[in-house]
């Protein structure tokens, strides 16, 4: 399982009701259903991912996050999760607000554009970073709203969103000392647990 998913699953209580925004092929929900007896749904728009979820027995609903989440009631889920999709929605701030409305708790993970490699790439090559971790070219990418950890935390501060917990990892290892030392420079993926 992906490093961020590995950590998230530890944060989710057995039997919780979970909504996973941009659930991909349903790895997280599939794991949580089997090992923690959670009951949940994934939202996805990629046809291949949807079919993969259906085959795997993951409850997947075809729904575009950019068209809103008004069909879900306030506090109707214990946890609303969004992994690696914040940077791909049109209005990350609104999606975050909606997640906090629907879920008692919200977990968000996203890639850190402030990571030293991205900074290095932009500073010395003068071009938008392309790497194994961020493999897209600027003109053909699902990622339209990159941010750094500091940017995200500023948004939370402006919106009175309380950060319960933050873990920073790189794509292979978990939570190394360097990530803790200087997360906005050395961490590749941040996992935030936030509430209102």
């Amino acid at each position: 399982m992906r490093a961020d998913l590995e950590i998230i699953q530890e944060w989710i209580k057995p039997g919780a009701r979970v909504l996973d925004l941009g659930c991909g092929r349903g790895e997280l929900l599939s794991f949580l259903t089997r090992h923690k007896g959670v009951q949940g749904y994934g939202l996805e728009i990629d046809p291949h991912d949807i079919t993969a979820c259906i085959e795997a027995g993951v409850n997947v609903l075809e729904q575009d996050l950019d068209k809103g989440l008004g069909n879900f009631k306030d506090n109707s889920f214990d946890v609303v999760v969004m992994t690696q999709a914040l940077q791909a929605v049109h209005r990350p701030d609104r999606v975050l607000e909606e997640m906090l409305r629907i879920g008692k708790e919200t977990i968000v993970t996203f890639p850190n554009f402030g990571h030293w490699r991205a900074r290095f790439y932009l500073a010395f090559r003068g071009k938008m970073p392309v790497s194994k971790f961020l493999p897209y070219t600027w003109y053909d990418t699902p990622n339209i709203h990159f941010c750094t950890f500091n940017d995200f935390e500023e948004l939370c501060w402006q919106k009175n969103i309380h950060i319960v917990e933050r873990t920073v990892v790189d794509s292979r290892h978990r939570n190394r000392w360097s990530n803790r030392l200087w997360p906005n420079m050395l961490g590749e993926i941040a996992i935030y647990r936030v509430t209102r």
């Binding site: 009951q39 949807i50 259906i54 409850n59 609903l61 075809e62 729904q63 069909n71 879900f72």
Partner: peptide, 19 residues
Amino acid sequence: SREIVDALAAAGKPVSYAE
């Protein structure tokens, strides 16, 4: 169809939906 799906999700029932 979404009305059905939303009602099922609100009732906490296992459902998948494709458009």
